[in-house]
């Protein structure tokens, strides 16, 4: 399966289509960090929210860039389950690359600063919490991108609709006072939590929430793909 992950990443990077979501992400982050310096944890929390649709879009592109027949050839060689898993894994690896860029970016443009006031989080704590917030966004984003991929959604219009609905719904349903926040991955709740002190319990709760949401979405993807090679 490693060879298939490598093949898909190579195909994604060599076509040049990988550039579009990365550039879009950088543009969004540029706007985000253009307003002045912020504490790392707080800034990274919002950065993860901004990055969620970008990572989902990146996943869709990665999965769609491979011709349908090539995907079927891979399925014949490694089996249907491994073929699907390799696609998700390749998308997760690509997403981690984008997350790394997003974590470094604010330091290059002066968008974050170390502790200024007494009681501010240490730099290390801010970096760790920021990394956690971004990692939390990866599984739901990959799952959403997979649901929007051509192999799952079918027609291109459906794929774009799933992606747009998931991205917008993820933000709208995550707002304070949402009637059904659990329908969306915990992006905004995580960003809000990073604005203040965060205890271990709520942190684990947010982690479980993100993983459960992603697991359900991946299950939906696998179910849809049962009859869609």
């Amino acid at each position: 399966m490693t060879a298939l992950v490598r093949q898909r990443l190579a195909g994604f990077l060599r076509t040049g289509r990988a550039l579009a979501p990365v550039l879009a992400g950088l543009l969004a982050l540029g706007v985000l960090y253009g307003g002045g310096r912020a504490q790392p944890a707080e800034a990274y929390g919002v950065s993860a929210v901004v990055l969620f649709p970008v990572l989902a879009w990146q996943t869709k592109i990665l999965l769609d860039v491979e011709p349908d027949v090539q995907r079927r050839l891979a399925g014949v060689l490694v089996g249907a389950g491994r073929e699907r898993a390799a696609g998700l894994l390749a998308a997760a690896v690509a997403a981690l690359g984008t997350v790394a860029v997003a974590l470094v970016f604010p330091w290059l443009v002066g968008g974050v600063t170390g502790p200024v006031h007494p009681g501010d989080r240490t730099l290390l704590a801010g970096l760790l919490l920021g990394g956690w917030a971004h990692l939390l966004a990866v599984p739901p984003a990959v799952a959403l991108g997979a649901l929007a991929s051509r192999a799952c959604a079918g027609a291109a219009g459906y794929g774009v609709a799933v992606l747009a609905l998931g991205a917008v719904g993820g933000l709208v349903l995550g707002l304070s006072g949402s009637v059904a926040p659990w329908l969306a991955p915990p992006l905004l709740p995580t960003a809000r939590a990073l604005g203040g002190p965060l205890a271990v319990g709520p942190g684990l709760g947010l982690t479980g929430w993100a993983l459960a949401w992603a697991a359900l979405a991946v299950a939906g993807y696998a179910w849809r793909r049962r009859f869609r090679a």
């Binding site: 298939l4 190579a10 195909g11 060599r14 011709p67 060689l77």
Partner: peptide
């Protein structure tokens, strides 16, 4: 055959052999 892929013949076949 899905020829719309960014690989050379050797790179593609080697990759498929590894996938297999």
């Amino acid at each position: 055959f899905p020829a719309d892929q960014p690989f050379t013949v050797t790179a593609y076949l080697t990759s498929m052999a590894r996938v297999a």
